[in-house]
């Protein structure tokens, strides 16, 4: 997965790199793109960390509009778990709705229901077992470094993948105070039951010695993995990218966009040595 991201990146960079030597160029163009009706976008998260847990409702806009995504207010948002606990979320403004009583616990299944603008949506996600992120190691890298000559490093989270179950992971990388916007998700198809030590190749941030790097690891369920995997694939653009499509979502309801994820969370922060 991360490898794929990395591979596409390298290929495009190389094609463009070679072509650059032969006078390629990029420029901003005006395209007359179709407009579409506003669609409701749901970003729902329940974690095993301290609450409140947030659900955000916004709307889509046309491509030519400003990046100002209208918040949806006055919605009815409720999350249930499979033990019969129910929490009706309170509105906090800017499209955010927060839980007051709900606990995120591994092994429980959560159901999100949203009624907004006369439409109703439902999504289900299960919180997987928590896997302990043991440490972060760094590998010296030569990939995609924008400033050749600098010595840059690639972080690799280390933990042991359990043998008995299927696992899916999401990593959020922060360099000093900058969050890496790339999406990093992975599964244990090839490493089931083994120590995990795959490096996270980023096309964006290049840690150097003495920088501080944090990795937030989420254990996610398959539907969440599928969402982020396909979101990432649709972001990939260029000659070697797949035909873009809306990501595969677990939200049911007319024209729904976004995801609902119940996941564990753990953060480690270390200095590059």
């Amino acid at each position: 997965m991360m490898l794929k991201h990395f591979k596409n990146q390298s290929k495009i960079n190389l094609v463009l790199g070679v072509a650059c030597l032969l006078t390629s160029c990029t420029k901003t163009i005006n395209l007359d793109l179709n407009s579409s009706d506003p669609k409701i976008v749901i970003e729902g998260n329940v974690s095993d960390g301290a609450g409140p847990h947030l659900v955000r409702l916004t709307e889509s806009v046309n491509f030519s509009d400003e990046n100002n995504f209208p918040a949806v207010s006055g919605a009815f948002v409720v999350i249930n778990d499979n033990l019969g606990n129910k929490d009706t979320l309170q509105e906090a403004g800017s499209g955010y709705y927060y839980t007051t009583t709900l606990q995120g616990v591994s092994g429980r299944t959560y159901t999100l229901r949203v009624n907004a603008k006369g439409k109703s949506f439902e999504a289900v996600s299960s919180m997987p077992t928590k896997i302990n992120l043991d440490s972060i190691t760094f590998l010296k890298s030569a990939f995609g470094n924008p400033n050749p000559g600098d010595e840059v490093y690639v972080p690799a989270p280390r933990f042991v993948d359990p043998l008995q179950e299927k696992n899916w992971y999401r990593f959020i990388v922060t360099l000093n105070d900058t969050i890496d916007k790339s999406i990093f998700v992975d599964n244990d198809n090839l490493i089931n039951g083994l120590p995990y030590q795959r490096p996270i190749f980023s096309g964006e941030l290049f840690p150097k010695k003495n920088d501080s790097v944090a990795i937030e690891m989420h254990c996610i369920d398959q539907v969440t993995y599928d969402y982020f995997y396909s979101l990432n694939a649709s972001i990939g653009q260029g000659p070697s990218a797949t035909t873009p499509a809306n990501p595969v979502t677990n939200i049911k309801g007319e024209g729904a966009l976004g995801y609902f994820s119940a996941h564990t969370t753990q953060r480690l922060k270390v200095q590059v040595k």
């Binding site: 179709n34 407009s35 579409s36 669609k39 889509s60 491509f63 916007k181 035909t243 499509a245 809306n246």
Partner: peptide
């Protein structure tokens, strides 16, 4: 080709919305 017919935000990132394949 497939170009976006809209956009929205996921985790603070602009994400594109597609309607028809190769339209």
């Amino acid at each position: 080709v497939t170009f976006p017919s809209g956009k929205y935000s996921i985790n603070g990132q602009t994400t594109f919305y597609y309607t028809e394949r190769n339209g």
